[in-house]
Nucleic acid binder design. Structure first.
Lengths: 357, 357
DNA sequence: ACCTAGCTTGCAAACGCTGTCATCGCGGCT
DNA sequence: AGCCGCGATGACAGCGTTTGCAAGCTAGGT
């Protein structure tokens, strides 16, 4: 910065003011400084400025994994919102319990970011306590926490609608398949079962616990669940999978056993994964990109607007996407006219359906 | 830090030394300081220390998208390697050309990270020049650049082996399907066509340019390509897709037209996407997690070992994964015994096949 | 001609840490 | 006893910014 000042023939203060866009710089000076900065391709040291301002210009996000469709899309939306606010994005990937302990013990984000986003963790009381001691704004994503700022999808309502849809189609024996996400992760799965149970209760359908299946991860959970269902006296007429990934596993397993979808069993997913269309899978759609974008904007408002409400909870809606994997129970053959009862009818893509990213 | 010093009854220098684990601190003092730090739950300001040491403890990575299977897995491996080296990860998502210009103009990573990883960009001469001016180590991922440190997968060799495999099965008319990744992205696609062309040349098979198809993005590219192929006088007997995602689009389109896979057309993918197994798709496997991990270690060595070779190029191998979507041309029905010729036979998952993450 | 207000600019003191140098005490050597 | 060396500690000068304060300049009013 002294170099730029020398080259522009002004003081460092003026350079600083110019570069930060303060209004107290004359147009002529501004031009000189900007040109000098460009010629030296100067870029400011955030370390130095944060030392004095106390703000780092960085936002940290803690995620349980990076290898998931949801995370990629969410981070994409988040990064775009943060970029607009001129904030950098730092990622703390905390894939295991050991890493997690380490994270909460050392709190590495402590003075290295202006805010922390916590995504899809089901935190213990102690962990939440540590975050409070952190002394920086924390925003929760994909998990609702009383009185804390957060953004999430309305999982309960989504699961409700999905279940209600199946009930309205005439289904009475509806299985719900969850992944065994393990201790402390994927909070939203629990919300989704809740929505499922609510609708059944309202409709006066007793919840058969044999039909609420939990186990395995990803597609495997779906396949395993079908295996389990096939060992019970009576197959359900519909399977609601916690996520599209699980639903794909379900479809795969049903296909292997030559069980017609939706002829014998309807399958409903949750997410609207980019491949759901390929599987012609009906699903409850959410938009993780939107979740990320919203979280980014919430962070910005918490950081920049002093009067911001630090405990705002934003709940994003879901919408039901109807495809070919669901039908009233006992529907024979394929309503579409193609004699394909193997549950993997692949429809031509309906264009223009994706949310803008 | 002065607070800690006061509480421990020592000077700030001693606190600094203790906290950095320097050996010139007596055990007694060390204990006192550590306890004081714990009681105040003190954590050091990297801004301040980087200001004097010149090192930020951060690595920046520039990616063209976050919504891709490859990126998620690569970043996962990268973050794990960086965590081991006690380096933080910063992400610059540069999804559009406008963002890209902005990135190269401002070089925001400039003094805010110790090194920059550039992933899957096909840079212009000017852009490369800007990176040189950057004055920090740059490591290229998924793109080979003469004389620059980099990690990538052996795309040419992978495509070679894949093509050779198809040739060895007896195929002579082999289509290659690429995505229209646009200017400046996804360098590896070009390498893959190169491998394909090489093998055909060596085998004395003339490359029919009608069979090298480029257009669309993701699965769409695959679907569009099939549509195009179906309008030519003679269908190829095999389709080699640039990526599994494209291959899934290909499978979908073939399925719609009721063209048997591998009966009429064999389909080979590239990547070993987590869903490839579900589609029973033969594919040339790469391990993006490994790519990321290796890149992370390369960065660490460049940063920490003074004698490190800054221009090391690491090329990771691929391996062919055989599943049910490929067979010799004209293979009737389904060799597995199930009368399923629709190209979407879903095999039971072969367990224990994934590379460790 | 003088005063004042308002706009620009420069000076210098932080910010929290690291690293160099000096200091101190202590044991072993001559 | 005196000297040397070494391990442990403290004092202090930066590192590159921001920011409050003071100073300079210009223009407009009296």
């Amino acid at each position: 910065m002294p170099d730029v000042a020398r080259r522009a023939g002004v003081s460092v203060s003026t350079v600083s003011r110019t570069l930060r866009g303060l209004p107290t710089v004359s147009p002529a000076t501004r031009r000189k400084v900007e040109q000098a900065a460009r010629e030296l391709s100067f870029s400011i040291s955030r370390s130095a400025s944060s030392l004095v301002t106390g703000r780092t210009g960085r936002v940290a996000v803690m995620v349980p994994t990076l290898q998931a469709w949801f995370m990629g899309a969410m981070l994409s939306g988040l990064s775009s919102a943060l970029r607009a606010a001129d904030l950098d994005l730092m990622i703390y990937d905390v894939p295991s319990m050991a890493e997690r302990r380490r994270f909460f013990e050392r709190l590495p984000a402590r003075r290295n970011a202006d805010a922390l986003l916590v995504v899809s963790f089901d935190l213990s009381r102690e962990e939440r306590g540590r975050l409070d001691e952190l002394g920086m704004p924390v925003v929760f994503v994909s998990q609702q926490t009383e009185g804390r700022a957060g953004v999430c999808v309305d999982d309960v309502e989504g699961a409700r609608r999905g279940t209600q849809y199946l009930v309205n189609l005439g289904h009475r024996r509806i299985a719900f398949v969850q992944t065994d996400s393990g201790k402390g992760f994927a909070f939203s799965a629990q919300e989704r079962v809740r929505g499922y149970r609510k609708v059944l209760a309202e409709a006066g359908i007793p919840v058969e616990e044999d039909l609420v299946i939990c186990g395995g991860i990803g597609q495997r959970a779906g396949a395993d669940a079908v295996a389990r269902l096939l060992t019970t006296p009576q197959l359900p007429t519909a399977i609601f999978a916690e996520s599209d990934e699980v639903a794909m596993g379900v479809l795969q397993a049903l296909h292997i056993s030559r069980i017609a979808v939706p002829g014998t069993v309807s399958v409903l997913g949750f997410d609207d994964h980019e491949l759901a269309e390929l599987f012609d899978l009906s699903t409850v759609a959410q938009s993780p990109v939107e979740v990320g974008r919203t979280a980014g904007e919430l962070v910005r408002s918490v950081l920049c607007e002093e009067d911001a409400d630090d405990t705002r909870q934003i709940v994003l809606p879901t919408r039901l996407v109807l495809r070919g994997s669901t039908a009233p129970p006992g529907t024979p053959g394929d309503p579409g006219g193609t004699p394909d009862a193997d549950g993997l009818t692949l429809a031509a893509p309906a264009s223009g359906e994706r949310p803008p990213s």
